[in-house]
C-alpha cells in the first residue's frame, strides 16, 4: 500500500480539528445559556466574543453582545470563521476531499449534519429552544467521533486525525480556562475572596468535567483546583495534560510504525510541553501567572502544528501562523 498523500494528511488533521472546535464551542454556548442567566449574564455573553478575540468583527454586525446576537454569530453566521456552521462547513469540505479515504458513513453524517445546520430556523434559536439545539450540535459532533472510531481504517490517516483532535481540544481547553479565569478573578488580589461557585461549576460543566471534579475534590471548588483539573489532570479526557499525552503517543507510533524520518521537530516540541505539564504544580503555575502559562501552551501547540505541516503536509518551514490557516480556506 502506498504512503498517505501529504494533502490528505493535512485535510484529515483539519477535519478532526474543525469538528472538535465546533463541539467545544457548542459546549461553551450551552453552558452560558444554562448557567448565565444571572446578573452577570450579559458579561458572560461578551466573554465568548472576547474568548475568540472577535470584538471587531462582532461589533461591526451587532451593537451589543446580547445572548441572541452572540448565539447567532457563533451558531448560524456562515460568514463568521469562528462560528459552528463555518467549522462544520470546513470539516465537510475536507471530508469531501477525503472521500476516497474516509468511510462512507463518516461522509454521509457530516454531509447531513451540515445540511441540517444550514436549515436552522429562528424558532430553534429562541431562548427556550437553544439548549436543545446546542445539545444536538454537540451530539452530532460526538456522532462523528463515534462513527470515526468505529469505521475509520487505522492506517496513517488515523494518526493524523488523532493528532488534530487532541491538539485542538488542548487548545480549546486553555482558551476556555483563560477567559473564564480572568473574568471571574480580574485581579490577583481577589484570590481567596468569596467566589461564585456556580460560575466555576459552569466552567467545569462546559468541559463535561463537573462530576469527575466533584469526585476528586468533594470538599469544594476553588479556582486553583479547577485550573489544575483542566490543565494537569491525568484522567480527565479534556485536560491539556491528557491531550498532550495522546499527541505524544500518536506521533511516536505514527513515526515508528511507518518508519517516517520527518517529524523530529514536532516530537521535540511535544516533549518540551509534556515535560512542563508533568513537572509543574498548579500553585507554581498560578504564582507565575496563569495567563502567561496558557500563552506558552498555545504557542507550543501552534509550534507543534507548524512542525507537523513542514514535516508531513509539505508546508514551507517559515509559515508564521499556520494555526489560523486551514486547507479548505
Amino acid at each position: 500500500m502506498s504512503s498517505l498523500l501529504s494533502r490528505y494528511a493535512e485535510c484529515i488533521f483539519w477535519l478532526a480539528r474543525f469538528v472538535e472546535r465546533a463541539e467545544d464551542l457548542a459546549r461553551i454556548l450551552d453552558v452560558n445559556e444554562t448557567f448565565s442567566r444571572d446578573a452577570r449574564g450579559s458579561q458572560n455573553w461578551l466573554s465568548i466574543v472576547q474568548l475568540h478575540a472577535d470584538e471587531k468583527r462582532f461589533f461591526e454586525k451587532h451593537p451589543i453582545a446580547t445572548a441572541d446576537a452572540v448565539i447567532r454569530f457563533y451558531v448560524t453566521d456562515i460568514e463568521n470563521p469562528t462560528s459552528i456552521i463555518w467549522a462544520i462547513r470546513a470539516a465537510r469540505e475536507n471530508a469531501r476531499t477525503l472521500r476516497p479515504l474516509i468511510s462512507t458513513e463518516m461522509w454521509v453524517q457530516l454531509n447531513v449534519f451540515y445540511n441540517r445546520l444550514k436549515a436552522i430556523d429562528k424558532a430553534e434559536l429562541a431562548p427556550g429552544a437553544m439548549t436543545r439545539l446546542l445539545s444536538w450540535i454537540k451530539e452530532s459532533c460526538q456522532t462523528h467521533t463515534g462513527i470515526t472510531e468505529g469505521t475509520f481504517f487505522r492506517d496513517q490517516g488515523w494518526y493524523f486525525y488523532q493528532l488534530g483532535r487532541y491538539i485542538e481540544r488542548a487548545d480549546q481547553t486553555t482558551r476556555l480556562l483563560d477567559i473564564k479565569y480572568h473574568l471571574l478573578l480580574p485581579k490577583t488580589a481577589d484570590v481567596g475572596s468569596p467566589i461564585d461557585a456556580s460560575q466555576w461549576s459552569a466552567l467545569l460543566r462546559s468541559a463535561a468535567g463537573y462530576h469527575a471534579f466533584r469526585r476528586l475534590h468533594s470538599n469544594g471548588i476553588t479556582p486553583a483546583r479547577v485550573a489544575g483539573f483542566l490543565l494537569l489532570n491525568h484522567r480527565f479526557p479534556r485536560s491539556v495534560y491528557l491531550c498532550l499525552r495522546e499527541v505524544d503517543t500518536n506521533l511516536s507510533e505514527l513515526r515508528s510504525r511507518y518508519s517516517l524520518r520527518g517529524g523530529t521537530d514536532a516530537c521535540s516540541s511535544v516533549d518540551e510541553l509534556h515535560a512542563i505539564l508533568s513537572t509543574k504544580t498548579i500553585d507554581e503555575i498560578l504564582h507565575a501567572g496563569l495567563h502567561e502559562f496558557i500563552d506558552l501552551i498555545q504557542c507550543q501547540l501552534s509550534d507543534i502544528t507548524n512542525h507537523l505541516a513542514v514535516a508531513f503536509f509539505g508546508a514551507l518551514p517559515t509559515v508564521p501562523d499556520a494555526e489560523a490557516l486551514s486547507p479548505s480556506q
Binding site: 502506498s2 504512503s3 498517505l4 498523500l5 501529504s6 511507518y258 524520518r261 520527518g262 508531513f312
Partner: peptide, 9 residues
C-alpha cells in the same frame, strides 16, 4: 512522483 508523508513516491 507524488508527495506523501514519507516523501516522494
Amino acid at each position: 512522483y507524488m508527495r506523501t508523508i514519507s516523501g516522494l513516491s
